[in-house]
Amino acid sequence: MAVNGMALGMRPGKPSTLPHHVASRRTWRARLRQAVLWFVACVWGFPTLWVLYETFFAGAGRFGFTFANLAQAWQVAPFGRYYLNTLVMVFGLLAVQLLFGAVVGFVLARYDFPLKSVITLIFLFQVVVPIYAVMIQDYRMLSSLHLLNTMAGVMLPYTVSGIAVLSFRQAFRSVPRELEEAARLDGYGTFGIFRRVYLPQAIPAALAFAVVSVTYHWTDFLWPMIVTNTDNARPVVVGLAMMAQASESGMQWNLLAAGTAIVILPVLILFTLATRRILAAFAATFNW
């Protein structure tokens, strides 16, 4: 369906020679739209702002600013350890997923061999099956491998990402063969061609995948919660949830606010620094 003005039977537009009342009505409407947008943004931002306010100002007297709540929350739960675990798992997974994705994507895009379509289907299968469906069996498998309560255990089922494989494959397939032949004439071997010709072409796909993977695994809760049961392997999201449960059974409420602030502050700062770039990345990709 080609959508343009002509196909819809409309006259080609003349640029803005509108009657005066229409134009003034439009600026009035634009102002109203802007006001509504600000109102919505205030409503949406308020809960977060309130929690941050309570973290930094509650119990500090009038007009006071305090780090006491943050420090107390940091003592109650080992957030340093949680953050370390999260970083190791999220970026470790990203590295492994990118490595497997690039290599497998390259082989699938570039070479032929028996059963290739079956193998491609296996990776497609991984995209479609939700982890929830196999959670119990995976847990039991980790248990028999003595990998429960380890970071490796949390990471293992995710180490190969079908999305990574398929998006690398797609990116590599769009590389023209002439480029490869030219590189071969210049004396590059297969690995050199992979590194110098193919990989640079896949950088946008890799970045888009990185955004998806990092957001998914950083916010993932149920699977790491099931696998871990001590602070040694818990990511920060699970640690926060455990802290919240403790707070419901009679802990101080200000600690809940402070703990939440510890988790959201880094990402909020990052988001404030690179707002438009991150929004563009979100719009260009999506969580599967």
Partner: peptide
């Protein structure tokens, strides 16, 4: 505005 709206 954008940070407020997209913080969640």
């Amino acid at each position: 505005l954008l940070v407020a709206l997209f913080s969640p």
